[in-house]
């Protein structure tokens, strides 16, 4: 388990079909994933661009519906 760059997190969200909107001090990535499930992740505006620490990244991976970090990166690399 390690950190994840913010850019990679955004790439996966977009590939999943999630859309970003800003609400207050939060960036909310939300939408229906390829399996038809609703997914939502909130990121504070002050951490935009910062690497996501491993423990927090692990939580976000699960909230996006992936079993683990490996699945997350497999999805990123898939066609």
């Amino acid at each position: 388990m390690g950190t994840c760059s913010f850019r990679v997190f955004i790439m996966v969200c977009k590939k999943m079909g999630l859309v970003q909107r800003k609400t207050g001090n939060s960036f909310v990535w939300a939408g229906i994933d390829p399996q038809g499930e609703y997914r939502q992740v909130s990121i504070h505006v002050h951490v935009e661009g910062r690497d996501i620490p491993s423990g927090t990244f692990n939580k976000i991976v699960k909230d996006l519906g992936f079993a683990n970090e490996e699945d997350f990166f497999k999805f990123l690399d898939s066609k």
Binding site: T23, G24, N25, S26, V28, S42, H44, H46, V47
Partner: peptide, 11 residues
């Protein structure tokens, strides 16, 4: 930050 996220989420 967490309080900001909570307020935005609840709303």
């Amino acid at each position: 930050q967490l309080i900001d996220l909570v307020i935005d989420y609840i709303s």
